[in-house]
Amino acid sequence: MLQTLVSGLESGSWFALLGLAIVVVMKAADVPNFAMADIGLVATYVGISLAGAGVPFWLAVVTTLVTGILLGVVIDVALMRRLAKYGHFPLLLMTIGLSLALTALTGLVWGHDPRSFRAPWTGAAIEVGGGVAIGVSQIVSIVVGLLGAVAISAFFTTPVGAQMRAVAENRATARLVGVNAGRLSAIAWGVGGLIAAVTVMLQAQSALVSTLTPASLIIYGFVAATMGGFTSLFGTFAGGLVLGIIQQLVGTYISTAAQFSVALLVVFLVLVLRPDGFTKGMRLRDV
């Protein structure tokens, strides 16, 4: 039971982080980014290759993060920004096309075999009594996930973060008072890419990742973001964790085949019952 809970919290942290990345971009640039997990995967594979070539672990980690940021910014500047005036549909399609291309490109460059990002602590475990052992990498996932959520919340209290909230609230008015919406959307994409890189890297240091990872990860990220109503950081984070635990419980006690369906059912119920996210009205900390 404890093992199930910890596993749930671990995968929940990945979902929560990716959900946060989606929310950040959604708020500042008004795009549901279907390519978010792919950005993270490309960045992580760059890191894995570097680590495999003998680069020290932490340097590889930093390179991964920088790659994630750069990918996000480049995508925003080169592709997304010019489409904004044509409405939702081209933007949505562009991220889908990007996701296709990035996944296939990853497969072409690195192959389709599952890989892992070996960290110094990979494989180590802590005995917690009763014969239950918790992997260090699981703890790393949970702790980093929590830190990431706190960091993003803190980011939104900085001047740049406040401008981002202003743009999210009302784009036209924010621009009138001198907020540079273009710069902000680049920053949001950069932050999104960074979080996505962290997410996939966390998964890679604990389990295996392959070109199949983004497809499922992005759905779970969207489920988490939906639970937060695409606005609430807290709702998204809590939603991701809850989703992770539900997933593990369903997988352990019902069947692993039903996991995906249950996640889809959760989205639908949330959207029909509480379209603004289930923390709406609690108003803890909305972006």
């Binding site: 399609l93 889908i96 096309g97 990007l98 996701s99 296709l100 291309a101 990035l102 996944t103 296939a104 490109l105 497969g107 072409l108």
Partner: peptide, 8 residues
């Protein structure tokens, strides 16, 4: 898939 994504 790359070609498909890129053409899109």
């Amino acid at each position: 898939a790359i070609a498909y994504g890129i053409v899109l």
